[in-house]
Simulated scan of single mutants.
Amino acid sequence: MKIAAIQMCSGLDPDANLAALEPLLAEAATRGARYALTPEVTVIFPENREQLKSVAAPFEGHPHLAKVGDLARQHAMFVHIGSLPIPLEDGRFANRSVLFGPDGTQQAVYDKIHLFDADIAGLNAYRESATYKGGEQAVTAPVEDFTLGFSICYDMRFPRLYNALANGGANLIAVPAAFTVPTGQAHWHVLLRARAIETGSYVIAAAQGGHHPNGRATYGHSVIIDPWGKVIAELDHDRPGVLLADIDPAAVTEARGRVPALANAREFAPPGLHS
């Protein structure tokens, strides 16, 4: 199966972001992709919470998701929107990933589980949980001969999620992201390769890249990694573009046979006090 990672530079206007996405999806389809992944915050990359509140729409009947469903149907292709904000009853938002099938219907949704809450020396405290509510359920879905595992950006720092996805049948794992430039330069490739190696799965990571209207700068460098941890395709820049690679379930079987880490894993007690 041929898969595509769509790299974008999303801004503050959902209609403009979808207009930018359309030709990229068309290119992926023309070049033979059966599945295309877009980055985190594809539909809106907000400047602040108030700006987010002014444009976020309820999930049911969401106008921009309806448009994406039409595009999936038009191209007869799985289209995976990396994420968009969905308002919740408590005033926060879900950072939600949505998979559409080739018939344009929604196949699966995933809410980002891990949220970045940190006190960083020399900087103000950052509380993603003040704006977003973390999800509670790992998600997989069939995509032709593969089982797709869902994750979003910061999730990639938590191996336990990827282990659960692989043990739940996933052999292709999606990582839509909006990595900053400093963390991208330091951690992007090593984290993604580690997630592929430890699960014996393909990893596809679609990134935001460039300087955004909200003042952020993101790293780009969308990649596709094979189950042995080899980068088989990469956009070596931060500009919008389409990245494609052919993937084969047999490579997953081979990698997991050579290093059966999933099968060899054991439960164990945490460290405790010793007298």
Rank of each mutant, 00 (worst) to 15 (best):
V190D: 10
Y132D: 04
E27C: 01
T180K: 02
A245N: 04
P270T: 00
N17M: 11
F146P: 02
L65T: 04
L12D: 05
L243A: 13
Y110W: 08
A196R: 09
G241W: 11
A5S: 11
L235G: 08
N171A: 09
D248T: 08
A269R: 00
A57N: 12
T140L: 08
S222H: 11
Q107L: 07
Y154P: 00
P271S: 02
E254W: 08
Y154W: 06
A108R: 15
S54P: 02
Q51N: 09
A121H: 13
E89S: 06
F78T: 03
L24W: 10
A233C: 04
L37E: 07
P87N: 14
V223G: 01
M8G: 12
E22R: 13
F45K: 09
G104I: 01
A26G: 02
I247G: 07
Y219K: 05
A16C: 09
G215T: 03
A251F: 12
P102A: 02
Y110H: 15
A66Q: 10
A130K: 12
L148N: 12
A26P: 00
L18V: 14
E60G: 00
E50I: 10
P85D: 05
E128I: 05
S129K: 13
P102V: 02
I225E: 07
M156F: 13
A261K: 07
A57Q: 09
W188M: 03
W188P: 00
T30N: 13
G210N: 07
G215Q: 06
F100S: 03
I224R: 10
S129H: 11
E198P: 00
A16S: 06
P58G: 03
A177H: 03
V139G: 01
A269F: 00
A217Y: 03
L99C: 01
A28E: 14
M8L: 05
E89L: 14
G149K: 08
A233P: 00
F179W: 14
R216I: 01
H189M: 02
R92N: 06
E40Y: 13
F45Y: 12
N167E: 07
E234I: 01
A263M: 14
F158T: 02
V43I: 15
L71K: 08
Y162M: 03
A108T: 14
Q51E: 14
A170D: 15
E47M: 13
D111M: 04
L273V: 00
V175G: 04
E136P: 00
A19C: 06
Q137F: 01
H274I: 01
T253I: 08
I86Y: 12
A57W: 07
A20W: 14
A178S: 08
L243S: 05
G168Q: 11
G210E: 09
E50L: 12
